[in-house]
Design a protein around this nucleic acid. Sequence first.
DNA 1: GCAAGGTC
Length: 727
Amino acid sequence: MHEVIISEKPKSAEKIAKALSSKAQKKKYGRKISYWEFEEDGKRTTVLSAVGHLYSLTSATSRDRLGFDLKWVPAYEVEKNSGYVRDYVYAIKKLSKDADKFVHACDYDVEGTLIGYNALKYACGNNAEAKASRMKFSTLTKKDIVEAYNHMIDIDLHQVDSGIARHMLDYYFGMNISSALMKAVRSSSSSRISLSAGRVQTPTLSILVDREKEIQSFIPEPYWQIKAKSDFDIIANHVEDKIFDEERAKRIFDECQGADATVTNVNVKETIRKPPIPFNLGGLQSEAHTVFGFSPKRTQVAAQNLYVGGYTSYPRTSSQKLPESLGFKEIFAGLLKDEEFRKHIADLPAKLKPNEGKKEDAAHPAIHPTGVLPSNLSPDEEKIYRLIVYRFISVFSEDSKLETMKVDLNVNNEEFVFTRKRVSHEGWLKHYPFKKQEADEFPPLKKGDFLKIHEIISEEKETKPPARYNEASLIKELEKRELGTKATRADIIAKLYDRKYIDGKKIEVKPLGVHIIDTLKQYCKNLTSEELTREFERELDCLSADKITKEEILANGEKEVRSILKDINNNQKEIGSKLYESYQESNVVGECSCGGKLLKKYSRRNKQTFIGCSNFPQCRNTYSLPKGANILKSTCPTCGLPMISIKRKGQKGREHVCLDPNCGKEVSKRRAPEVVGKCPECGRDLLKRSGRFGEFVGCSGFPQCRFSCQLKDLDKILLEKSEELSK
DNA sequence: GCAAGGTC
């Protein structure tokens, strides 16, 4: 009897094997793939693992991967960067060959069910998916695993169908519409540009476009703030804060001139600040963005590496909870071996109770250190690791206390106010070095005191448009709207940058991004909003309730996409030319000396980005971009070309220089070439030059006169020529 | 080349 258990990822395979038998042995298939095996009561059990989805959809009929007739193929055949999947598929194929019992032990959700189902169906084969039993667990603790193993259920075919339908619908809409947009551009300009649209990326872009339009159409309103300066570095604000009436501002300003202040009230109060809550992926990404300026993707990569190394827990979790079963004592015992951490852990209360957040996750707890101390971390991993450890420690720490002083002043019957804040009890703040602590001085004031006013200031300001999103705040917005999943949000945003729809840390939408949304709003409105996701959800719920079949859902989807494609194709030329125009506009970086526009271009031949002119081929001005250079918005004061920021080797920080590396250098400074004689053919100067094959001599009349020779041969040639002439 | 979803 041979039983094969298939889990979703290598880490779960290990946990499942160890929970089911103390005799479980780690084995290797090839050099890279681990699996687990044990034998009890004459039954051999092999615990294998997938690595997420092993199979991907592709077109069953067309070579260009388009259409509606789809099939599942091994992911490594159609997706780049999926090469590592190959060995896992082979391992499952090989090691399950003689199995007579199959167990599906992937995460208990729609995607997990499909991952295991496809592994059984396509890798194990022989109808394994129909014979298999299903383990249902919510955490990978020994108790849950054993319980699930002892009470196995059938595979939920509704979950399987939901998963398949979701994958297919995303393919229908995403692949076909993206391709139609690119085809439209090709039809009008014969240019190839990468364009894409999808159920998640398009609404995400749409959120950014809406914000962009709000900012563009914002009309700032002037207002005034009146401030009073006094001893103890006090700057008190007039209680009305923003005064929109200029007359009134002026009146207050005038009336306060020369007057002193009376303290009418002093209020000091203490507030409690609870420790922070444990990190889920979004929380970690947001904090790393604030503290280190890391993009969510960068944080995710570092956290994944820490997890694979065994130093921190599974990162793709939405949980903000730390169950006691994790064994806090053991984790801290591990961390104690680090001198720096020990100082902080020593302070913790005897009873370890974490301050938790509200969010939960069926499969994983919040992100936490495992207690295994790392070595050889990259700088990014080191930063993220310390952040996770200190957050973990502070979650268990005491409350901190903040003292706030609020002082009311009366200046010639106008009321002013100022506040000061200081931490009165450090508590958890002592263990969380990433948060700035308030430490204002409290001036010794009491009710009835007089204060000399040194100056009254009136500041004219303007109301500001809503702030731009950054990557972290956008991820939060996507979480709120339930767009994408915790594992994909960072990738989706990275994709929008890749496509050149958006730009900058404070996200700006480029003309191409705005235009993609304009086009799609016209031809398939529900793709630009969350409506498509909600429509999928509604239909998949109906599928689970047996109110609709998978085939019906897919037929509806196909009908909808086909009608969109027809509309796009009927207006192909117009859509294409408009998109291409905005694409070019998106690449304008400045003005060329010929009056044309300088564009960012890509040379296929050199595989490099460079700057060229929109008047090419009439204007052949080009500038190369040094590696890692960023084009800035500012222009060079000398020549008007855009400035770029570059990083020089061995230098700290970045340097801002003109796009033209010869800008400002006078011709004479470029070392005028040396005159070495007169041209024997035209009588003009001969100049010493250096070329690919060493020094040579050329005529200054080039290209009208093309005389040239090697420097060492010059004397001989001149002699020959003069002899020829004298003959 | 184009999606979104798992994962190393």
